[in-house]
Write a protein that binds this DNA or RNA. Structure first.
Length: 116
DNA sequence: GGTGTGACCAGCT
DNA sequence: AAGCTGGCCACAC
């Protein structure tokens, strides 16, 4: 129904905002949850336009597949992303999340796909 | 309306 | 082992 009226971007923002405190996910995981084989590039670019969204998007909880803070430069300062993650009890070292798998939050698993 | 691009991912050389 | 290219799709000019 009208649910599909929302842009793909808003879907990405919706998933990103559902990431619980102290959890992180990857661009590919979100892409996989939304469209299966959709290119993760689109997810990252959606984050680039996150400022367009009405509400703030926890883009700092979204990192690449390796748990690296690849998009930290887009927060205005390369230190913002790390500080935000450290504020959530997440340890960062060398721009990479320590114990990334433990903090990893897969939307396709947590949201079960169908939990509308 | 075509071209370029983008915070990725995975495979190939 | 490490670098690079292709591919994916939606948005901006």
């Amino acid at each position: 129904m009208m649910a599909g009226s929302e842009s793909f971007f808003e879907k990405v923002y919706g998933v990103a905002r559902q990431i619980p405190f102290g959890r992180v996910t990857s661009y590919g995981a979100i892409a996989n949850y939304l469209g299966g084989r959709m290119s993760a590039r689109m997810v990252g670019w959606a984050m680039n336009n996150c400022h367009v969204h009405r509400y703030p998007v926890p883009a700092h909880r979204v990192v690449n597949r390796n748990g690296m803070l690849t998009g930290k430069h887009h927060f205005g300062s390369p230190l913002i992303m790390q500080q935000l993650l450290e504020a959530e009890e997440i340890t960062i070292e060398n721009d990479r999340i320590i114990h990334f798998e433990e903090h990893f939050w897969d939307p396709s698993i947590e949201l079960k796909a169908g939990n509308d």
